[in-house]
Each structure stands twice: as structure tokens, then as C-alpha cells.
Design a protein around this nucleic acid. Structure first.
Lengths: 165, 165
DNA sequence: TCGGTATCGCTAGCCAGGCTAGATGTTTCT
DNA sequence: AGAAACATCTAGCCTGGCTAGCGATACCGA
């Protein structure tokens, strides 16, 4: 923690550079989400929900309110409000579940499809190009690195209020 | 958009795998932030502010409310409230700016230092180890990839409400 | 088949943490 | 000196979370 370049522990400058790139990427991603959702006049959570529904449909599945809540890590009550907002804005629709009448299937409207597509397809295309620009032989290392990072972030890091005993 | 594996445009499976890793990493990162701040009984924004102040101090600079607001992309009014919370909790202190008496310098308390250190140093250490595990020859490609992604995310993506004219 | 329990989404009501507008004191420019 | 710009704070509002609890439906064991 004595170094001037943030708070990474890294002796090797190429490692420090790598971690700094990671940090920049995280910020850039968060900022992008803000901008996209602001551009669609909705909040980030609603945007993610919309993407989830569309992705689920494309996977051939049904998007259920409960699953949306779990995906977003918010309560089912909040999800009800979220669905109210997105149905009011014409992005989503509620329809009855084919087999479970307690439940609801959430579907996206063509309007939502179009809007998401207009805003994100260019970006996804560009990201695919950036990925394609990575030399073939470096890709496994890259994927391994990101997965290791994800696994680590998933595993550790204080759920408990520190020395709860 | 006809493919089952989310919504990436990618023919080459190694590219698709890479983009999927990116996606997982983004989620893992966001989830980790939630857990860490919940573990410290504060919200994510306050946590980021705290990290910013500590990082600024270690860089030898002064953390000013205005800069914190800019860093977090919130208003200065919200920043005032944020500082109220973090001073009340004993993590930060307000002191007078040495040369500009309109302004305020925000400093972190030893308590904040300790708590952040206890929670994040292990994680940062582990991240450095993961970074160190990347083969030397793959590092430039990795850094380049992340920087290109960041640059792209920074550049594009609808600030405007789509066809404003 | 029927009764108990679990599960689904929803409603009601609360609270944290954003925002805008505007006040106050300070600096800077002419 | 005076005007304009600036840094922060206060007052008051609104969004988007949360918990508690409800009616309807599904499931499961006797």
C-alpha cells in the first residue's frame, strides 16, 4: 500500500499494468451501463431485467418474475414494481404461465427488441471484433484469467460483519 | 440474435467463450462490491468513495468533495450527504483546505484504513497472484484487450435518447 | 379425496439515497 | 471595488429499494 499507483500489490510492472487495465475496464463498464439506461430513460436495473428477459427468450425459456428477482438480487416485491414500470413503458408484457396458474411469464415486446437491438448490437459487434483481434494463442490465457478472477470474486470477501463472534 | 448462447455475435467458439468470460467477470465484480459494502454496513457508493479517498491520499493528493462527486458521478449535494454519513460512522473527516477556504479536504481515519485493509488486502493479493499466473507472453494481449474494451465502452453507446431530431 | 403447507405474485407502507434549487461564504478577474 | 464564478451546504422532493402479509394455486401425505 505504499505505491503511488492505487492500491495494488504488484512488484512486476506488467502485472501492475494488467491490474490497472482491469480496474479501468470495471469503471468503463459501469459507466456504459449508466449511459445506456439513461439513454433509454430507464434505470440500470430495469435495463438488466430487460436484457435478461430477452436473453431467456432467445434461449427458448420462460422468464418468470421470481427468476428475474434472483438474477437481479432484488426482492420479488421490487420485481413486481419493476415489471409494472416496464409493462407501462411497453417493453414487457405479463402473460399466464402455461402450467402453473400462480405464476406469470414475462415476455418482451417487439418494441423492446428493436430498442435494445438499436442500442446494443453495434456495441456487441464491436466487442466481438475486439475479441477477434486477440491472437489465437493468447485466448485461452485470457479466458482463464477472467474466469479465475470471477471465481475469486465469487468466493471470498466478507459477507459477515467482520468478527461476528 | 438467433443463437442460444446469449446475445453475442460470434462465430468462432473461442471468441464466444471469451465474451462469455467477460460477461461473467462483470457480474462477479458487481456482486462482490455488493457483498463487501454490505459486510461493512454501507452502500456501494459510500464504499467507492472511501476507496477513492484512501487512494487519493496514498497518491499524495487531497480528496475534495467536488472530485468525489465527479468520480462517483453524483451531485455535490448528494456528496455532502455521503460525507455526513461517512463522518458520522467515523470513516472520514472533513478538514479545512490549506489554501482555498471555500473548500474542504476529506481525509480517512485510521479506522477506515484498517477496515478497508482487513477486507480488501487479501482480495487484492489474490488478484495480483491471478495476474502473475498469466504467462508472460500473453500479458500484452490481455492488457490490450481490456484497454480496447474500455476505450470502446467509453466511446460509444447512446447518451442521446435515440433520434432526438 | 381432503387438509396442511409451500410457493407464486401482488399490495401496502416504509426508508435510503439519489436529485434540483437556492443560500452562504470565498476567490478571481477586470 | 464590484461582478462573476466557485465550493459546499441546506431544504425538500422522488425513485427504487425493502419487509410484512394476503389471496390463489400447487403439491403431498394420510
Amino acid at each position: 500500500m505504499t505505491d503511488a499507483s492505487h492500491f495494488w500489490y504488484a512488484d512486476d510492472p506488467s502485472i501492475a499494468a494488467l491490474l490497472e487495465s482491469v480496474r479501468r475496464f470495471r469503471r468503463a463498464d459501469a459507466d456504459m451501463r449508466r449511459r445506456v439506461s439513461a439513454g433509454m430513460a430507464m434505470n440500470v436495473t430495469d435495463m438488466q431485467a430487460l436484457q435478461y428477459v430477452i436473453a431467456t427468450e432467445q434461449r427458448g425459456g420462460h422468464a418468470l418474475p421470481r427468476d428475474i428477482a434472483a438474477y437481479l438480487a432484488i426482492s420479488t416485491a421490487s420485481t413486481t414494481k419493476l415489471l409494472d414500470r416496464l409493462t407501462a413503458s411497453g417493453h414487457l408484457e405479463r402473460s399466464t404461465h402455461p402450467t402453473d396458474r400462480r405464476s406469470v411469464v414475462v415476455t418482451s415486446t417487439p418494441h423492446a427488441h428493436d430498442e435494445i437491438h438499436a442500442r446494443l448490437s453495434r456495441m456487441h459487434q464491436a466487442m466481438a471484433e475486439i475479441a477477434a483481434a486477440v491472437p489465437d494463442e493468447a485466448r485461452p490465457a485470457l479466458t482463464a484469467f477472467l474466469d479465475a478472477m470471477s471465481a475469486h470474486l465469487d468466493s471470498e470477501t466478507g459477507v459477515e460483519p467482520l468478527t461476528p463472534a
